[in-house]
Computed example of a mutant assay.
Amino acid sequence: MIKTPDILQSEEIERIEIELLLEAVFRYYGYDFRNYAFPFIQRRIRHRVCKENLTSISALQEKVLRDSVVMGELLSEFSINVTEMFRDPSFFNSFRTKVIPLVRDYPEIRIWHVGCSSGEEVYSMSILLHEEGIYDKTRMFATDINKGVLEKAKQGTFPLDRMQLFTKNYIEAGGKRAFSEYYKAVDDKVFFHPFLQKNV
């Protein structure tokens, strides 16, 4: 498709609006999305403009600067919450076999889970550290820009139908017990034992 001067002008205006929105978000709220992949940011912003029933990105910028709720919605658009228990089992297995022996004798261990989403990988690390006998001297920090998923992470509640996948990942990650020992199933949900949050 050949782009006409009108289309090129429209694309340039949209790019400028997106850059201004991201600059405003950074300057007013402190969140820096200015170097994110442009196609990703563009899609998420367009989606938010549509959800807010607005006609332009400039209109979204005005709402974002004047309404922190709208800003929260935009943050949710930008945060990708892809996670699962023992996601990438080979990483957890390597951590268990290669990192744990190096830190086992440390008096204190600190781990920071950046972008922890709804907490599945944090709970996974708690289980691994517990099985290796060093959980009590570990302090974990779990952060995410999306407050909604952080609240979900604090609950330690996950859908029962995910347990089959989570169990498979746990076994591949070198799990040493029955995975079901770490949670209690109630109806269609599972509740992970509170001791897994103790040092988070």
Rank of each mutant, 00 (worst) to 15 (best):
V64P: 05
P39W: 01
N35E: 12
L75Y: 01
E17L: 03
S124P: 08
R46S: 12
D136C: 03
Y182I: 03
I111N: 06
I111K: 02
V103C: 09
A153I: 00
R44E: 02
S118A: 14
K3Y: 13
V64T: 11
I7W: 06
L128W: 05
M140V: 03
S118T: 13
R27T: 12
T138F: 01
I45T: 10
A178I: 10
F40N: 12
E151R: 14
L20C: 09
N199F: 00
V69Y: 13
R43C: 09
F26I: 03
D188V: 04
F78R: 04
M163C: 10
G148L: 01
I2G: 11
D32N: 15
S10P: 00
T143H: 08
E120Y: 02
W112V: 08
K152G: 02
V69L: 13
F166G: 04
V186H: 10
Q197Y: 01
R48H: 11
V25N: 08
L128N: 03
I171W: 02
P5T: 04
A173T: 02
P107W: 06
E12P: 06
A185G: 05
L65F: 08
K63T: 07
A24Y: 13
G156V: 06
K198L: 05
L160D: 07
Y170M: 01
A37G: 12
V114M: 06
T157C: 14
D161A: 05
E172H: 11
R162H: 09
E131F: 06
F86Y: 05
D88T: 05
C116E: 09
F86C: 00
R34T: 15
G156H: 05
